[in-house]
């Protein structure tokens, strides 16, 4: 196997790892805290309701935003590290 290929595979592996971590957080904050785990969070009160309601109507969107920018930042780092960046 050539160095080119090994490096390509390592890049892809790092890429998939980053996507997996991000999508786990994505699912836990929306489907988890916002819907399925909401009863577990019912004890944590926030502004007249519970934390699950906040996640469902506001928190999940904030998490999505942070996730996309975090992913973009990390991917740019990976692009440089593996020398596949465009600039």
């Amino acid at each position: 196997m050539s160095t080119q290929n090994t490096s390509g595979m390592a890049y892809w592996k790092a890429n998939v790892r980053l996507i997996t971590i991000s999508l786990v957080i994505w699912a836990v904050c929306s489907y988890g805290f916002g819907i399925i785990l909401r009863p577990l969070l019912a004890g944590i009160k926030i502004g007249g309701t519970d934390l699950g309601f906040w996640f469902a109507q506001q928190g999940s969107m904030i998490v999505f935003l942070v996730l996309i920018f975090f992913y973009a930042y990390k991917m740019n780092q990976l692009d440089r590290q593996f020398d596949v960046h465009e600039d």
């Binding site: 991000s22 994505w26 929306s30 916002g34 109507q57 996309i68 992913y71």
Partner: peptide, 25 residues
């Protein structure tokens, strides 16, 4: 949202959550 309250959260999460998939996949 006004008439369904919490249940309508599915529109908020559903329509925005797709952008995470779009950005990464």
């Amino acid at each position: 949202i006004a008439f369904q309250g919490y249940d309508a959260s599915l529109f908020l999460m559903g329509w925005t959550g797709g952008y995470v998939l779009l950005a990464m996949l």
